[in-house]
Design a binder for these strands. Sequence first.
DNA 1: GTTAGGG
DNA 2: CCCTAAC
Length: 672
Amino acid sequence: MTSSSPTLQDCVFEVGFAMGTAVGTVEDCREMFEGSAQTSVTPSSPTNQIGNPVAYKLVRVSGDGRLVPATDEEILEVNETDMLIASDACQTVGYLATDEENLEVNETNIHIASDACQTVGYLPTDEENLEVNETDMHIASDACQTVGYLPAEGIPSRLSHIESSEGLLQSDNVRPYTDQYYEEMLQKVEQEERLGNVHGSQVPSTPPDANIQFSNEEKFIKEDQAHYEALLQEPISFSSNVQNECNMNQSDMIEPYSNAAASPKETALSEAAQKPDFSRVRGEICLDDLPIKALQETFRATFGRETTVKDKTWLKRRIAMGLVKSCDVPATNLTIKDNKLIGKQEKSNVITNVVSKDMGDDVRATKPKDAPSSTDHVNATDHYYASEDYSSEQRDAKRVRKPTRRYIEELSETDEKQQNDKPMIPSKDQRSSEKPEVRSISVSSGKRVAVTRTVSLAGSEMKVPYVSHVQRSRPRENIMALMDYHSSCLEDRASPAESNFSLTPSQLNNEVVKRDLVVESTSRPVQREFATSDKNNEEHILSVVDQDMEPEHIDSSGNSSDDMGLPITQGGALRRKHHRAWTLSEVTNLVEGVSKYGAGKWSEIKKHSFSSHSYRTSVDLKDKWRNLLKASFAQSPSNSMGSLKKHGSMHIPVQILSRVRELAEKQSLVPR
DNA sequence: GTTAGGG
DNA sequence: CCCTAAC
């Protein structure tokens, strides 16, 4: 990319996680990226209401510290992708997707600044990410637990380090949680203590009852949103300690699900304090009814030292964090549904299921199918949302197959249905609800189309630059043939759909434009994205292909000179591209071959038994055999039915079918 | 490049 | 038949 704008070379996606703590991030930004102008994603005004209470907007931090909304072009120019996450929410997850989207990421940085209880940075291991050129992950945190995850192989990571806010820790390897972190947290606590009074006055509009009941959450969210709105609308000056002035609401929402008795800290608590009410209401810690004294005592019990802070809010927050830290918070406690935060609450076994359940509800597509649900000790590292865990289930007889991309696509489509559908231009028969994947599209100077999509993370969401899911490889060769054909004699058969192939994106069908994403240039051949974009389109295109393929020399099998010839469509009937009915001789050949070489040796069979029918590929043989098997077993119980099945299929003599069955049984008994 | 299996 | 993952 040409460095058209100096301010764009070093962009930062700054994601403040839900529940409103992004205020403090800018400070950290400055520390971490001093000097350079930054582009950040910060929560923006809540234009959407359903299920997505906090949206994120790309903004740039200009020199004087103001947040300037990014222009479309700026968004497009993000080439070095930085993701910065700052939060003091309970859990912070930095994530870069595993898909080929990353193919286009040249430099990927994840920066996480957090005093969160749990901070997880994740970069995937998939080989698709091989092309991520340089990967940085910085995690600055005074967190109780910080987990950086970087792939073991494949990515030429430049470096990855986790550094504490105080810069004490620097490591080339991701460091697991150590006691050092805990101590740092204590230091931090001390620091904050000194500033305690200031905090007290700065905490914005903390309601007197800070304990979040779920019925109240909507309100808080709205408050936060309003807060962000204000932030975005007027220039922001950074206060010195913004990081700490966050609303403590989310700390109370943390809800450390754990077996209450299991935590040693807690038992200590209940002994030490004068019977503070630590009974949990459905898994919650109730701190708010405690007097300051009790809170201080609790603090002491939690952190092992005295405190003089009088600020109830601050105390509660700290205590909650301490407790949460000791309790191994599951990745997702909260679920956004119908504009409400819903904490999944279960009686005893909460931890065991909360993760899989929530994710099952909300991030179906990104969730590993078998989310660890068996243990009561849930680590954040167990829940990176990669697509990797599919395989590890049962490696049984059959070859394990992960869902095809098409399948994945379908899944993700259904997954994101519940999002706020920015109603795009509604098309006639294809409702926009079917394409909720694409959040926004901005076209800049007719060159590229940039799209962001929303990724669900631990119940929160963030936008990431969208790159097409669909395959990027060479188009199907018959499509290529089609293209060639069109280039040569376009005027002959030009239909509206065909002419789309060589026209500007704006002239494509609505669906296509809506969904397909990176149209690099108009000259680039339209690929599978086009064909897969929706069913109707596909059918249409296929039909076009069919018609155009009929001239024999186009046939991509290259062997159409063979005797059978291509099925000629009469009057443009829809037929498959290369359909060649299996003749009886072929079938017998196949059966012969199988009996000779065994089922599965398709290339052998092809070589020997089908040398005269070169158009049958080994795959064809395999498919045919599969069908034969099906037919034979389907027909076997009632032998009377004979070979006359449906009129469409070939009439296979019974002897052959029984022979097939014979062979099949033999083969299954004698594994090769 | 081949094979298995889903579509 | 096609497509694609797994080998």
